[in-house]
């Protein structure tokens, strides 16, 4: 492993799930991504992926313990192209109902638990669902009607500003599944597990300059 001054891409490790599937998918699209768990490495990266699976409470504790919360805010403030995935997106809002957790506040809004009237609908929302673009974004380039992505989550993002919503999905109710502002883009679905359409998003990310 090279200790060069900069990293092509860093995948943030904060004890929130298995990150190797994200890394493998990055390699598949030609993005040399390394898994890093310290603020210094993160700050050296040309682009950053902020993934995560698990509970919001434990994730925030781990981020703070490793000093990564402020590092993530810093890389986003300085313009590094950054992609949040699943729990990474959720803890980017202000607050999550999961474990009553105050989160990073990169986007204004809350994360809420699915409360579904139809008893035949299962929670977590697990499986493939259509992602509909509501606004063009470089990372959603090539997205067509009917394209589906893989989801696993029991909580969903509820941002205050509609202007940051780039795509939505339906699960009894419509919910925002892709949020973005400037150099930060985040998805509730898992591009690394979504076959060709997911790899396409990661490929777009591998050359994205951080503008939208």
């Amino acid at each position: 492993m090279s200790l060069a001054a900069s990293l092509a891409a860093a995948i943030v490790d904060y004890d929130a799930g298995n990150l190797r599937s994200v890394q493998r998918a990055c390699h598949e699209v030609g993005l040399n991504a390394e898994i890093v768990g310290d603020p210094e490495s993160l700050l050296r990266a040309d682009r950053v992926i902020f993934p995560g699976v698990g509970a919001a409470g434990a994730a925030m504790q781990s981020l703070h313990r490793r000093g990564l919360g402020s590092a993530i805010k810093e890389i986003i403030a300085r313009g590094t192209p950054t992609l949040g995935i699943c729990l990474g997106l959720q803890i980017s809002l202000d607050y999550s109902e999961e474990n009553d957790t105050h989160t990073l506040g990169l986007f204004a809004g809350n994360v809420r638990h699915f409360k579904l009237a139809d008893p035949s609908l299962k929670v977590p929302h697990m499986g493939w669902n259509e992602v509909r673009s509501v606004k063009a974004h470089p990372l959603l380039q090539g997205l067509e009607a009917g394209d589906e992505f893989y989801y696993v989550h029991a909580y969903y993002p509820d941002p205050i500003e509609r202007s940051i919503v780039y795509a939505v999905s339906d699960y009894e109710q419509e919910f925002a599944c892709a949020l973005g502002r400037d150099n930060y883009f985040a998805t509730q679905f898992h591009p690394e597990k979504s076959g060709r359409v997911g790899l396409r998003l990661l490929k777009c990310f591998s050359t994205w300059e951080g503008t939208c």
């Binding site: 998918a25 598949e28 076959g195």
Partner: peptide, 8 residues
């Protein structure tokens, strides 16, 4: 398999 199959 995980290196070349990008579904769960």
């Amino acid at each position: 398999v995980a290196e070349q199959v990008f579904i769960p």
